[in-house]
Amino acid sequence: MRPAILRLAALTALAAAPALADSPGGRPVKMALPDGEQVYNQICAACHLDKAQGSPDGTVPALAHNAKLASADYPITVVMKGQGGMPWFSEMLTPAQVASVVGYVRTHFDNQYADPVSEADVKRIAAKTSEE
C-alpha cells in the first residue's frame, strides 16, 4: 500500500481558524498515517485510548462494542464535523484516511460491522454537511 503522506500545511483545521490561542509556532509538515490502524493508534487513541475504551468517566465515549457504529454514516459524520469537545477532522485528515479509520474501528474493538467504508462515503457526507 502506498503510504499516505499527510500534508499538515494545508490541512490544519484548528490552525486555520483565527489562531489566537497560545499555540506552538512550528509547523509539522508530514506524518505517515498509511492505514486505519495507524490513524486510530496515532490520532484517535489520544482521547479514546488504546483499547477504544473511552475516558473512565464516560465523557469521551468508548468506541469498543459500540452499537452506534452500525451505520458508517454516523461515525463519519462525527469525525468530519466534530461533536461536543471533539474537534472536526475534515481539515486534518484526508477523506481516504477518514474512511480507513472508520472502517478499522467498525471491524475492531469488539465491533463487527463488515460492510466496507469508502472514500466516496466520506465525500458524500462531507458534501451533505457543508450544505447544512
Binding site: 499527510l6 499538515l8 490544519t12 483545521a13 484548528l14 490552525a15 499555540s23 506552538p24 509539522p28 506524518m31 493508534n41 496515532q42 490520532i43 484517535c44 487513541a45 489520544a46 482521547c47 488504546d50 486534518m92 485528515l93
Partner: peptide, 11 residues
Amino acid sequence: ARDLAGFQLAS
C-alpha cells in the same frame, strides 16, 4: 505540539 502532532504524542 497541537492538532495531529499533539494527538500523535498524546497517543
